[in-house]
Design a binder for these strands. Structure first.
Lengths: 120, 120
DNA sequence: GTCAATCGTTTCGGTTCCGTATTATTTCGG
DNA sequence: CCGAAATAATACGGAACCGAAACGATTGAC
C-alpha cells in the first residue's frame, strides 16, 4: 500500500510534528537541531554505513566544514560518534550511538502518531 | 481513510523531504528556515487568523522576541507581513503573502510526492 | 624517497540567533 | 485623568553557524 496523502494532510502533519519538536526543545534538547543537522542524523541512521564527512557533504551538497561542525554539535549531544578509519587513517567513520538511535526512534513514533490522528 | 504510516516509512519520508529542503537551499532560500521559523510559518498559513506575536509565542511556548525576530527574517524574505491592528493598536496582526502561500504550497507538494514514492 | 592528491579539521571575519532585561506605545480600570 | 497592565520591539552579551581559505596528517603514484 503506497502512502496516500493529500497536500493539506501533508502540511498538517508537518505542522503538528514541527510544533511538537519546537515545544519539547528545552527538556530534551535532542531535537533542537537545524534542518542540516537533522538531515545528517537521519542519513546516518537510515542509510547503510559507512558514513564519512566527505560522503555526507556530497550527499547534502554542502561544504565539509558544515559536516564537521554538525558532528561536533551532535557529538556533544551524544547523538553520533566519530572514529578514525584504521584502513585509511585520513578517513573518519561516523558511528551511531544508543542515544542517537533512541532519538531517531522517538521521532519516528511521533510522526506515526500524528499521521494516524490526521483529519481525512 | 486515516493515514497509515509505519515508523520506518515515517522516518524515510522525513529524511527525503529534509534532504530536499537542505539541498535546494541556495537557489531558493525560502526554506532555509529554522525549525521555529517553519513552525511559525505553518501556523500562520494553516490556522485561522488573526495571528499575533503573543498568540504565536504562547502556541509555540517560546518568548516573544523569538517571534519578533522570526517575523523580521521571514518578512525580509516576503513570506509574511505585519500590520498594526487598528482596533487595538498594541497588537500586530501577521498577514499572509503571495510568496509565502506559494512556498507553503510547494512544501505540501514536496511531501506528497515523497509520500507516494515511499517503499511499502 | 618525493611530491601531488586526498581527507578532515581549524581559522578567519562576518552574520544570525538566543535569552534576559528594558523600552515605547497603547489600553483600561478606578 | 492617572497609574497599572499589556503589547511588541529593542538593547545587550554570548553562543552558534556560515563560506572561503589555510592547515596538518595520510596516502599513493612514480
Amino acid at each position: 500500500m503506497p502512502v496516500e496523502l493529500r497536500p493539506l494532510q501533508a502540511l498538517t502533519l508537518w505542522h503538528r510534528v514541527t510544533l511538537d519538536l519546537v515545544r519539547e526543545d528545552g527538556q530534551d534538547r535532542a531535537f533542537d537541531l537545524s534542518a542540516r543537522q537533522l538531515a545528517i542524523l537521519l542519513t546516518i541512521y537510515l542509510e547503510p554505513p559507512p558514513h564519512t564527512v566527505r560522503g555526507l557533504a556530497s550527499k547534502l551538497r554542502v561544504t565539509k566544514p558544515v559536516i564537521t561542525r554538525a558532528l561536533d554539535t551532535m557529538g556533544r549531544l551524544d547523538l553520533v560518534a566519530r572514529r578514525r578509519d584504521d584502513a585509511d587513517r585520513r578517513n573518519v567513520v561516523i558511528q551511531r550511538t544508543v542515544k542517537g538511535a533512541l532519538a531517531v526512534e522517538r521521532l519516528g513514533d511521533l510522526i506515526v502518531a500524528h499521521a494516524s490522528a490526521l483529519p481525512r
